[in-house]
Design a protein around this nucleic acid. Sequence first.
RNA 1: GCGGAUGGCUGGAUGGUCGCGGUGCAGCGCAUCGAGGAAAGUCCGGACUCCAUGGAGCAGCGGCGCCGGGUAACGCCCGGCCAGCGCAAGCUGAGGGAUAGCGCCACAGAGAAGAGACCGCCCCGGGCCACCGGGGCAAGGGUGAAACGGUGGGGUAAGAGCCCACCGCGGUCCGGGCAACCGGGCCGGCAUGGCAAGCCCCGCCGGGAGCAAGGCCAAAUAGGGAUCGCGCGGGGCCUUUGGCCCCGGGGGCUGCUUCACCCCCAGCAGGUCCGGGUUGGCUGCCAGAGGUCCGCGGCGACGCGGGCCCAAGAUGAAUGGCCAUCGGGGGCGCACGCGCCCUGACAGAAUCCGGCUUACAGGCCAUCCGCACCG
RNA 2: GGGUGAUUAGCUCAGUGGUAGAGCGCUUCGUUCACAUCGAAGAUGUCGGGAGUUCGACUCUCUCAUCACCCA
Length: 131
Amino acid sequence: MPRAASVSQPDPAAAAQVLRLRRRAEFLRAARGRKHAAPGLILQAYLRRADDPGTAIRAGFTCSKKVGNAVARNRAKRRLRAVAADLLPTLGHQGWDYVLIGRRDVTANRPYRALQNDLRAALARVHGRPG
RNA sequence: GCGGAUGGCUGGAUGGUCGCGGUGCAGCGCAUCGAGGAAAGUCCGGACUCCAUGGAGCAGCGGCGCCGGGUAACGCCCGGCCAGCGCAAGCUGAGGGAUAGCGCCACAGAGAAGAGACCGCCCCGGGCCACCGGGGCAAGGGUGAAACGGUGGGGUAAGAGCCCACCGCGGUCCGGGCAACCGGGCCGGCAUGGCAAGCCCCGCCGGGAGCAAGGCCAAAUAGGGAUCGCGCGGGGCCUUUGGCCCCGGGGGCUGCUUCACCCCCAGCAGGUCCGGGUUGGCUGCCAGAGGUCCGCGGCGACGCGGGCCCAAGAUGAAUGGCCAUCGGGGGCGCACGCGCCCUGACAGAAUCCGGCUUACAGGCCAUCCGCACCG
RNA sequence: GGGUGAUUAGCUCAGUGGUAGAGCGCUUCGUUCACAUCGAAGAUGUCGGGAGUUCGACUCUCUCAUCACCCA
């Protein structure tokens, strides 16, 4: 499966910029939205309303201390950032906030392709479309 | 060759591609830099900042503790001493004072600190001789973690530093050493149990809080309430409101006292608390007790001089994702000068240094010791 | 990042060098037709882990771990 397939498909305008969630309140709001737990990660998604206009896709990454020590938590968050940077510009919906949560041992060790598929499936599940 | 001891280093490499953070260039973009030996625990020591500043003394509290040296400093390091362990190389030690004082030493045991006689030993007297009474003794047994010097000999009724030799202990003198301490002589005749990570004594050190310290800017709100402390005289100058200066007094000066200096004294300022708002940006924030090489001094820690190098500054927090090759380790097959698969230690900067402690797969280097073999 | 405190029975806590305790809970028996109450008896511990000091450590010292709280 050549990686070029995912890059050529959308037009550049649709590939919106992905901003970063920075505030605790934004994380808490996303936690009240739609959720799906995939083997390699947990996805939370929330559609911003008129209170916060804008069409940007935003994403945040987090790991609890259950994931492990600082090395394990940072490694999980880096892999989540990598997979989100790969897929969210094309598969994410404008105006939505996403929070990706790392899972103990799995997020750091799962093959990258499987992790990509986990995010694809989770996005499809959250947006109500069949995988 | 086998086994062991000590000290030090390293702890994947290269390339491609897509990305992230900082810096520079006016800009597309390009260039360049981007985790550790422990970045960790926060156990010590500092730098720095605030408590207004700098000293002196006292008290309390805390820490340290063989001796000498190193250092900005230390509870760290180096060298030495003593004690214990080891055949040895070496390792370990909070290692001042127990005749300054107080306290504690459970149980057991006769007795646990100027003590004491349970089993006993010896002498005298008596006797219905399985014993009783009086006296002497502390060597032996027993208890205990520890029993009031140890071993041997003399001595004695039995014994005892009662006497003697050696050892220990204490005092003193001499020699060596900067010192801790070591060696030797003489005297004492035992008067000296352990615990100071119990109180304490002696010596030395230490004010408190910490970069979420602290400073600046912007935005926003009702610029609010409570409380603490001070609650002044005289004189002079300037053009009045008012301001400034001098003398005296009072207050602040973060345990107390005190000295110097500074500030304040009727204003709207200061300290604390409550309520409300903001949960933004800049700075502190990276060239330093820095690293490395050479020379000199020193046993060494380290110091001095010279040359060269510049090495992350993030803030929901960058340093990554994927792929290939090489190399290390493990497993399997084996056509064993081959192939396949798996794995990658402990762990991620948050103001910065010097230490300590703890975690750590594998690899490398140097020095030394013991045993065996060869010459 | 920095600073404090705690860890003892299933739970909440005492215990400041000398055989580890209280209350609640638990088990069994009694009382009752039965349950609760009440009464009687009983079980329960690597004192968070590891070193050191001491004859002897829950206690004193060091070290590691875990948990909780505070800050602009």
